[in-house]
Structure formats: structure tokens, C-alpha cells
Amino acid sequence: MIAFILTAISAYLAYLIFTAGSWTGQELIAGGILAIIVAALTSGFHFRNNKIKCNPIRMILALLYVLIPFFIEMAKANIDVAIRVFTGKIRPGIIKYNPQLKSDFGIMLIANSITLTPGTLAVHVDEESNDLYVHLLNIAPGKEQKGSWAGKDIFSWFDLSAWVRRIAE
């Protein structure tokens, strides 16, 4: 029952967001009926177990994470890649990176962040030890023989894996 109500509420919120600016009484009622139909059809699919993690502090942290550290790292990575596109100075390689995260959601978030940020691209995820195999565009000379990299070796200003640990674990 709680799954049904939560799905209906989130479907109605999504409807309100998509139709913002043209709300009339009839449209709001039609949206409510649609939300109930959607919830009846999909609530069993969206909630496979009853452990619902929905902490508002984590949501605010996630928004903050996207707006400040992630965006700054992304801008820096893009300028770096742009310079390397024009000069052609690259020293690529695949390294092992252990983000020290356990949950699937955390791994998904850090792998996506890593692909968009600091000259890196997630190639392979080891599902037992949760290691990421990451392709780097430019490895600093002398660093390539290092066994396993930590967050502070990859990121320069913000340690994104620490942020993801706060959001997703």
C-alpha cells in the first residue's frame, strides 16, 4: 500500500513538473487519475523490496554535489581535454581505482561522475571487489606503476568519492 501511494505521489509530481505553466482545474484532475493508473500498473515494479531510503538531507547533498564540486571538476576536465585536443600531448593508460564504496547506487554514481570528470573513462567494473578500471587520458610520469589508486590521486580539488560516500552509503 505504501508503495502504491509513493508511486502515485511521485507520478503526480512528475506530471505537475512537465505541465508547469498550463495548470487548470480539469488538467489537474486528469493528472490525478493518470497518476493513480500509473501507480496501479507499476508500483510492484518500482519497489522490489520494502527498504525505502529517502532521506531529505541526502537529496540536498546530492543537489549540492552536482552544482558545486561536480560542475567545477567537469569544467576543469573539459578545459584540460580541449587543450590536449589541440596540442596532442597524451599519455594514456588503464589503471585500477578503488573508490571504497559498497552499494550499487554509489558505484553507479561514481562511475558516471568519473566518466564526465577528470580526464578519465570507466572501462570495467569488478563486481566482487568493487574496483573500477579507469582509462586515463594523461598519466603523470612515474605514477603508472602504482598498484591501486585512491580518490586523491585522480581528483585534484574535490575528492568526489568522499562526496558520493556521504550521498549513497
Binding site: 597524451i90 599519455r91 594514456p92 593508460g93 588503464i94 589503471i95 585500477k96 562511475a111 558516471n112 561522475s113 566518466t115 564526465l116 573513462l121 570507466a122 572501462v123 570495467h124 578500471y133 582509462h135 598519466i139 603508472e144 606503476q145
Partner: peptide, 28 residues
């Protein structure tokens, strides 16, 4: 975009594409 490029990279690696001019390849 991020998920798609990860899928392409993994598919290319499984297919046997080695990274060109690589100084290190831990996955190999």
C-alpha cells in the same frame, strides 16, 4: 551519455581493442 560511453568502452575492450600508446594496462 556517461553510461553509453562506459558500455562502448567495455564492449571495445572485450572485443580485444588494446589502448594505443598506453603506458600501463592494469586490466590486461
Amino acid at each position: 551519455n556517461a553510461t553509453g560511453s562506459h558500455a562502448i568502452a567495455q564492449a571495445a575492450y572485450n572485443r580485444g581493442q588494446k589502448p594505443v600508446r598506453a603506458v600501463v594496462d592494469k586490466l590486461a
